Simulated assay, not measured.
Amino acid sequence: MDTSFLQDELGQIENEVVASERRLAELEALVAEKKRQRLDTENEETELHGMRARDFASRTDSAFSR
């Protein structure tokens, strides 16, 4: 059985996970820096909240689909 399609899909998913983790780390660092400078962090914290909510939802969905 040819599994190259599945391997390609898995590679794409892994790339997306890495990019999301990188963005999350960048946002967390930006929020920390802006807080040190006493600047507004509302936009970044809203984006972080959304990313965390989507991550939690996807983890919850996958846990129940087993």
Score class of each variant (00 low, 15 high):
residue 20 S to D: 13
residue 50 G to E: 08
residue 4 S to P: 00
residue 38 R to I: 05
residue 50 G to A: 11
residue 32 A to I: 04
residue 37 Q to R: 08
residue 29 A to C: 06
residue 62 S to I: 01
residue 28 E to W: 10
residue 61 D to E: 10
residue 56 F to T: 10
residue 57 A to D: 00
residue 57 A to E: 03
residue 49 H to N: 13
residue 53 A to T: 13
residue 35 K to N: 04
residue 60 T to E: 04
residue 43 N to Y: 07
residue 31 V to S: 03
residue 43 N to A: 12
residue 30 L to D: 15
residue 22 R to Q: 15
residue 52 R to N: 12
residue 20 S to G: 07
residue 55 D to M: 13
residue 56 F to E: 12
residue 41 T to N: 09
residue 51 M to F: 00
residue 66 R to M: 12
residue 62 S to F: 09
residue 7 Q to C: 00
residue 6 L to Q: 06
residue 13 I to M: 06
residue 5 F to S: 06
residue 35 K to W: 02
residue 46 T to K: 13
residue 63 A to G: 06
residue 16 E to M: 03
residue 7 Q to N: 11
residue 39 L to V: 04
residue 48 L to A: 03
residue 61 D to K: 00
residue 61 D to F: 14
residue 7 Q to Y: 00
residue 47 E to Q: 12
residue 42 E to K: 03
residue 48 L to T: 11
residue 52 R to I: 12
residue 37 Q to I: 01
residue 34 K to C: 04
residue 13 I to S: 02
residue 26 E to N: 13
residue 29 A to M: 08
residue 35 K to E: 13
residue 2 D to L: 07
residue 12 Q to K: 13
residue 51 M to Y: 00
residue 41 T to A: 10
residue 17 V to M: 13
residue 64 F to I: 07
residue 29 A to L: 03
residue 57 A to N: 03
residue 38 R to V: 01
residue 43 N to M: 07
residue 35 K to G: 03
